[in-house]
């Protein structure tokens, strides 16, 4: 049996930590919104400003979760894994990169943009920040399927693999942020811990995301 020790949801309107509103979005625009969460957390991590917006939101949710479970960023974590599911892969940055190569007389491809056109960079950024040295994987689905997240995460939690996991949905497209992440461990680490089951994942996931309205 594993436990959800903490969960964090970030959308266009607020940051929810374990179901409680932690920070409301008074900024509007996604990039300013990510910046205001960063300032609220009071961390010094210059690499944050190089990240694309999706990575920023995944990074911020992970930061909150790791604090909740009392993990220190500097400590190497061989028994931790990080799993990201989303729908957009890296399409927000893909579209931005495409504008830099679309026209022959305005051709300026940049390696610092191109590197974020890979869906798994967000798990890489999280792994670097928290020194996570177990599995890091990104999987793409049309929508968040709680059963599928549970299966993929449970695979990664096997005894010879990892005993702790940061996992969830990290999606960002058309200026809309949709993040729901979980800190899952074999041990109970918080008073509010819930069993790691598809039903409990569903409870944490509020159905009405921007994408439900959009599609």
């Amino acid at each position: 049996m594993a436990y959800i020790n903490s969960y964090c949801k970030i959308d266009d309107s607020q940051v929810l930590l374990d179901g409680q509103c932690l920070i409301p979005n008074d900024e509007g625009d996604a990039s300013a919104w990510a910046g205001s969460i960063y300032r609220h957390l009071g961390i010094q991590y210059p690499k944050f400003f190089k990240m694309d917006t999706m990575c920023k939101f995944g990074f911020l949710a992970s930061e909150l979760l790791m604090r909740q479970v009392g993990a220190t960023p500097e400590e190497p974590k061989k028994d931790w894994a990080v799993l990201c599911l989303n729908s957009c892969s890296s399409l927000d940055t893909d579209r931005r990169y495409q504008t830099t190569i679309q026209e022959a007389d305005n051709y300026f491809p940049s390696p610092s943009v191109f590197v974020y056109t890979l869906a798994n960079i967000v798990t890489g950024e999280i792994a670097i920040r928290h020194k996570i040295q177990g599995e890091s994987s990104t999987f793409i689905f049309q929508q968040l399927d709680c059963e599928m997240l549970h299966r993929l995460a449970s695979n990664a939690l096997a005894p010879d693999k990892a005993s702790n996991l940061l996992c969830g949905w990290i999606d960002f497209e058309f200026g809309h942020c949709d993040v729901l992440m979980f800190a899952v461990s074999e041990q109970k680490k918080t008073d509010t811990a819930m069993e790691w089951t598809p039903a409990n994942i569903k409870k944490c996931f509020m159905k009405q995301t921007w994408r439900n309205f959009y599609i």
Binding site: S89, L118, A119, N120, I121, T123, S136, S137, T138, F139, I140, F141, Q142, D145, M148, L152
Partner: peptide, 9 residues
């Protein structure tokens, strides 16, 4: 069934 896409660079 829902296919899985593994996109890990």
């Amino acid at each position: 069934s829902t296919p899985i896409v593994a996109s890990n660079a």
